[in-house]
Amino acid sequence: MKFPKLLILAFSVIAMLSCQKSGPKEIALGKDQCDNCRMTISQLGYATELITEKGRAYKFDDIMCMTMYENSNPDKAKNAKLYVVDYPSGKFLEKAKATLIKGGKIKSPMGGNTQAYQTRAAAEKAAANMGASLTK
């Protein structure tokens, strides 16, 4: 009789785990620290996340910090999902789908001076206003 109960419990746990959110985790501004430079994340518009293949979330205060972390931790970055924040809305989007602008009047926390935008049109408009250039 114990075996069926254990089997039901095991299936219940697996079902609950499969329903967990697999995307980026919420950033607690002023509390979460960058996993690269250890600076407190204070500006949502520049925050990024790297989610490993196993689901571990690494948070960063600047796109440059995430890039540095990827380069120095290739084992964790392999097959990871990368997320950036759409600067105007504050919502996460996949880095591969974002349009990035760099330079000009942009001043990010660690000097990467890069912003992400959900659409190319929004990025072009922002780049023109900030004296920045599109990087992708």
Rank of each mutant, 00 (worst) to 15 (best):
P74Y: 07
N79R: 15
D86G: 07
E70M: 15
M64V: 15
S72P: 10
V84T: 14
N71Q: 15
D61T: 11
D62Q: 08
T67W: 04
Y83D: 09
C65F: 01
P74D: 02
K78L: 14
N71W: 08
N71E: 15
C65Y: 03
V84M: 03
A80K: 04
N71H: 07
K59V: 00
S72N: 12
A80I: 05
N71I: 13
N71Y: 09
V85N: 00
D61S: 03
N79Q: 14
C65L: 12
V85W: 01
K59M: 06
M64S: 15
L82N: 10
N71K: 15
C65A: 05
A57Q: 10
D62G: 05
T67Y: 09
Y83A: 10
Y69W: 15
D61L: 06
N79G: 04
E70Q: 14
V85H: 00
F60V: 04
A57G: 03
A77M: 04
V85C: 07
R56E: 07
S72V: 11
Y58Q: 02
A77L: 03
Y58W: 08
F60G: 02
A80Y: 04
E70F: 11
K78M: 14
D61F: 12
K76Q: 15
D62R: 09
D61Q: 03
D61M: 05
T67F: 06
M66A: 06
K76T: 06
A80T: 04
Y58V: 00
V85P: 02
N73E: 09
D61R: 01
K78F: 11
D61C: 10
D61P: 06
D61N: 09
K78H: 14
N79H: 14
M68S: 01
D75I: 05
N71D: 14
T67L: 06
P74I: 12
K81P: 02
P74Q: 09
V84F: 00
N73M: 13
K81T: 14
Y58T: 00
M64D: 13
D75F: 08
K59R: 01
M68V: 01
Y69R: 04
K59C: 05
K59Y: 06
D61I: 02
L82P: 04
N79P: 01
A80S: 09
Y83N: 06
A80V: 04
N73L: 10
N73A: 13
T67P: 00
E70A: 14
F60Y: 11
K78S: 11
D86P: 04
D61A: 05
K76P: 06
K78D: 15
M64R: 12
C65P: 02
M68R: 08
Y58R: 06
K78C: 07
K76H: 08
N71A: 14
K81N: 13
D61E: 03
N71P: 07
